[in-house]
Write a protein that binds this DNA or RNA. Sequence first.
DNA 1: CATTGCCCCGATAGCTTG
DNA 2: CAAGCTATCGGGGCAATG
Length: 286
Amino acid sequence: MPRAFLVKKVNIAAEKRSWSEIPDSARGDVYIPESVFPPYLHEVSEGSIAEFSCFTTAQKNNTFLQVQSHVLSAQLPSSAAQGHPDHKPECHMRTQRRPYSHSKIKITTGNMPSPVIPDNANKLADIPPAASVLSCQVCQKTFTTARMLKRHVKCHSETKKYSCEHCGKGFNDAFDLKRHVRTHTGVRPYKCTLCVKAFTQRCSLESHLRKIHAVTQQYAYKERRDKLYVCEECGLTAQTRNGLQNHLLAGHAQRLIMTKNNHKLTGYTSGGNTSPCSPETPHIKC
DNA sequence: CATTGCCCCGATAGCTTG
DNA sequence: CAAGCTATCGGGGCAATG
């Protein structure tokens, strides 16, 4: 059991939220101590239609949206509106400090209206940024496609589509939930071949290899690794879908039925040919 | 055929522990 | 402080849907 997670579970238990039992309409609010946020965040009015709407630069020329922009200028902590030269939009979060709150603390404003996507957002999908820029009104982050913007807007919401049956924690992404569940099941698909350690995430293994064994994976930036098929029941990993399927047939017939119903087998990328993972052998009890 | 949702990924931040 | 763990989120492939 991960050390850090043991500590964090206390906090989770304290909240004891079961997302699956809460209707979407009721999931929106999570109490966050006032001290966490700067004062201007609390000034966002509850009923503002502009709060979570997102629009294109082209639409900003629209009169109605110009009005919205003025509202936003007064309400949102944009650098232009607030005259904070230090303020950086969230799009710089990777390299600079996040503008509103500590990372991993989700932002909520209370009764949050549904995100408003511009009417022509769909038509703007996949249009390069030079032609049109979609921006999030919450954090000013810009996206090149409406699809990306839509998904991004969800990260400002407390509504989670996927909840953990073990602790109730909610996630926006099914894969994130699947990865999280491993912290409960103990499944660690990524094994180090140079020692006995195993990890739930590839990046953890690669970090371990780099720091402990001085082994650097030879991958190009953002290069995809080969898929690694993981049995979430016992932690067995296979390099092929058939390999996992055979395993499921042999040992987890019930699981296979469920998987087939979902039309997909769980697949993860392995480290490729240079991967230290050992997909042939399960490392957790089976 | 365009759009959308699902799924999976990697990069990275922030945390705890020793 | 290093190592390890977990969560967050943007990117992108692909199949389903209207």
